[in-house]
Amino acid sequence: MSALRLRSPFSAAAVASLRAGQEVLIDGVLYTARDAAHRRFVAALDAGQPLPFDIRGQTLYYVGPSPAPPGRASGAAGPTTSGRMDIYTPRLLELGLRAMIGKGGRSKELREAMVKHKAVYLAAIGGAGALLALAIKRAEVVAYPELGPEAVRRLEVEGFPALVINDTHGADWYEEGRGRWRRGGG
């Protein structure tokens, strides 16, 4: 299957048409957030405050880049393990978050919430930090600069490669891929 070129933020129609196992190349805007930023998002919501950016329709990328060497938009920028964000994510889906990029499986509860809110989860290749850094053309800290690598950044990417893991119809590519290649009782 050839890669589909997609612009982020994704339209509702584009997200609905994606299927688990589809390769995509993303152009456009991604917001970064990992553990510490998610804790702050939820603390802000609990305190009745808004998030530091409008999350409706946006794509979150779970990454804490390494420092940008001089003359580069970004240091290494591969995905971190997404499962740690599962407990915070339903609140963000309720606010309209439409897509997430990371690595590793999501909880059953979160997969159900993704179907309900028509959101998708994509994986980038864990450990491909240099390759993915070169797809980042601009990076700007937009919130929590004191968190260093865990600050929220607005990234502009070109041809960022990812694979659809969870689509809006409840399919899970990690399960399908494993099922296809498993031998014996496993």
Partner: peptide, 21 residues
């Protein structure tokens, strides 16, 4: 193939192999 390409790029461009150093 992409993992091997990443290794070549890291060495050539001076960008860490992984952001998790």
């Amino acid at each position: 193939g992409r993992i091997l390409e990443n290794a070549a790029l890291a060495a050539q461009e001076g960008i860490p192999l992984c952001q998790d150093c």
